[in-house]
C-alpha cells in the first residue's frame, strides 16, 4: 500500500473476473448480453405471434378485432421496435456464425462488426418502415394537418 512497486503493478494488471457486480461491461460484452436479451424477447414474441395465428385460424372473428387493434397509432411503434430487434438479432447471429468459422475473433473486429450490425439494423428498420407503408410521408402529412387544424382552432 505504500509505494508503487512492481509487485503492486502486477496485482493491478491482473485480469478481472467477469463477475457482473465488479466488472464494468466493455462494448463487446454489452453487445453480447443485448443480443441474448434480444433472443429471449424474440422467442417470447414468436410464441405470442404463433398463438395469435392459431387463435385466428380457429376463431376467425378474432382477426377483425386484432386488426382494429393494429389501427391504433401507437401499434406501429411496436412493429418498428420488433423489426429493429429482429434485424439486430440476425446481424448478431451472422457474427456468431463468422466467429465460429474463425473470422473476426478479436476485440477490434468485434467492435467494428458490432457497429456494422447496429448501423445496418437501424438502416434496415427505417428502410422497411418506409417501404412497407410509406409511414414517413404519412407521418409528416398527419403532423402537418394536425398543426393546421390546431392553427384553425
Amino acid at each position: 500500500m505504500t509505494d508503487d512497486t512492481t509487485e503492486n503493478k502486477k496485482m493491478r494488471d491482473r485480469p478481472l473476473s467477469p463477475h457482473l457486480q465488479v466488472y464494468r461491461l466493455p462494448y463487446n460484452a454489452k453487445m453480447s448480453i443485448t443480443g441474448r436479451m434480444a433472443g429471449i424477447g424474440l422467442a417470447l414474441s414468436l410464441m405470442a405471434a404463433l398463438v395469435w395465428f392459431i387463435a385466428v385460424v380457429w376463431n376467425p372473428p378474432l382477426y377483425d378485432q386484432t386488426m382494429t387493434l393494429l389501427d391504433h397509432p401507437y401499434s406501429k411503434y411496436v412493429f418498428i421496435v420488433w423489426a429493429f430487434v429482429i434485424f439486430f438479432y440476425m446481424g448478431n447471429g451472422i457474427r456468431h456464425v463468422l466467429w465460429d468459422m474463425g473470422i473476426g475473433v478479436n476485440e477490434k473486429s468485434g467492435i467494428m462488426t458490432g457497429n456494422i450490425v447496429l448501423l445496418l439494423s437501424t438502416l434496415l428498420t427505417f428502410g422497411l418502415w418506409q417501404i412497407s407503408c410509406g409511414c414517413w410521408s404519412g407521418y409528416f402529412d398527419n403532423a402537418v394537418t394536425q398543426e393546421g387544424e390546431q392553427n384553425e382552432e
Binding site: 404463433l50 395465428f53 392459431i54 385460424v57 380457429w58
Partner: peptide
C-alpha cells in the same frame, strides 16, 4: 406443442 398446433392451423 406450439409448433405442431401452428402447423395444423396452417
Amino acid at each position: 406443442v406450439l409448433g405442431l398446433a401452428t402447423i395444423v392451423s396452417i
